[in-house]
């Protein structure tokens, strides 16, 4: 007799969550970061509403420092799947020529990512936003609800979250409040890769190893994606065979040396990985409990 595998259980759960939001929210949006989790979330959204086209727009908050290949991939997906993708960049940040080295990664991330996101949500009046965060990523995320409520100013109050019972989601909110919804809450990094492989989901080529120009800073390999990255005295970009485990802003994303050029090889590497995924993100190291703090302020 047919039984459901764990990925089928997770898939059906995510589809159930998306349909609930679609039915109860007035103006939902899906945050599309172009990364692998977004790729899975997008795929699940297509499944949840098929044969209807995804009945809400996607939103990409472009910080101006995303990898060029991410932007190219986004445009390819837009074309291939006929997606409605809204791209927003914080105009104040552009005006100030915001970048991670002159302003620091904290200020840069806050202005371009957190503020940029709030602007876009407010501008379009979105009352529910899907995000690709997973509970296995980081300790403070282990307690995040599937439906996470934000005040009018997009604040998150970890002590005042609604209990989530069975799969009965309470999506009610007051005017001006919004919900962040995480349909991938119960997926692990490994589940994501396995699902991408099984479902043949397209992902940004940066996840596969290739010769790319990098510099090494504090033990982290940073890709020199364009000529905006200021080189320190004595620093020369060198070609290394690298790939990325997570994607974000190129000056803030660590690469790893790798020979994995196929999905099976990536899965192989993930299986024997010795460091956690978020290690590659520079911002998590800033301070203890930093993710919780950022989330309270409205970072996704």
């Amino acid at each position: 007799m047919r039984t459901l595998t764990h990925l089928q259980v997770l898939e059906s759960e995510s589809m159930h969550i998306m349909r609930e939001v679609m039915a109860e929210a007035e103006n939902p949006v899906m945050l599309y970061s172009v990364g692998k989790d977004s790729a899975v979330m997008l795929h699940l959204a297509r499944k949840a509403f098929s044969p209807t086209k995804i009945p809400f727009p996607l939103l990409h908050v472009d910080t101006t420092f995303k990898f060029r290949e991410m932007i190219a991939f986004r445009e390819k997906m837009r074309k291939d799947l006929d997606l409605n993708i809204i791209v927003h960049t914080n105009p104040d940040g552009v005006e100030q020529n915001m970048n991670p080295w002159d302003f620091g990664s904290d200020v840069y991330t806050d202005v371009m990512k957190t503020q940029g996101l709030k602007q876009a949500l407010d501008m379009h009046g979105f009352d529910a936003a899907f995000g690709g965060a997973r509970r296995d990523e980081e300790k403070s995320r282990a307690k995040e609800r599937v439906f996470s409520f934000r005040t009018r100013s997009h604040q998150w109050d970890p002590k005042n979250q609604r209990p989530e019972l069975w799969s009965l989601y309470n999506a009610r909110k007051h005017q001006g409040e919004s919900i962040r919804v995480f349909p991938l809450s119960n997926w692990t990094e490994f589940d994501i890769w396995q699902y991408i492989y099984q479902e043949n989901i397209p992902i940004v080529p940066l996840y596969f190893a290739a010769e790319r120009p990098v510099v090494e800073r504090n033990g982290v390999l940073i890709m020199v994606d364009d000529d905006r990255l200021p080189l320190l005295p004595g620093e020369t970009p060198m070609m290394k065979r690298i790939r990325f485990r997570t994607l974000g802003c190129y000056p803030l994303t660590g690469a790893q040396e790798s020979d994995a050029v196929t999905l099976p090889q990536i899965i192989q590497e993930t299986m024997i990985a010795k460091v956690s995924e978020r290690q590659g993100r520079v911002i998590d190291h800033d301070q203890s409990a930093s993710m919780e703090k950022k989330k309270r302020e409205g970072y996704f």
Partner: peptide, 19 residues
């Protein structure tokens, strides 16, 4: 014990999911 506030109090105040 994930959240900063509960690590300070030494108690688990919420529902957490581990894999």
């Amino acid at each position: 014990d994930g959240l900063a506030s509960e690590r300070e109090q030494g108690i688990t105040i919420d529902v957490a999911y581990r894999f």
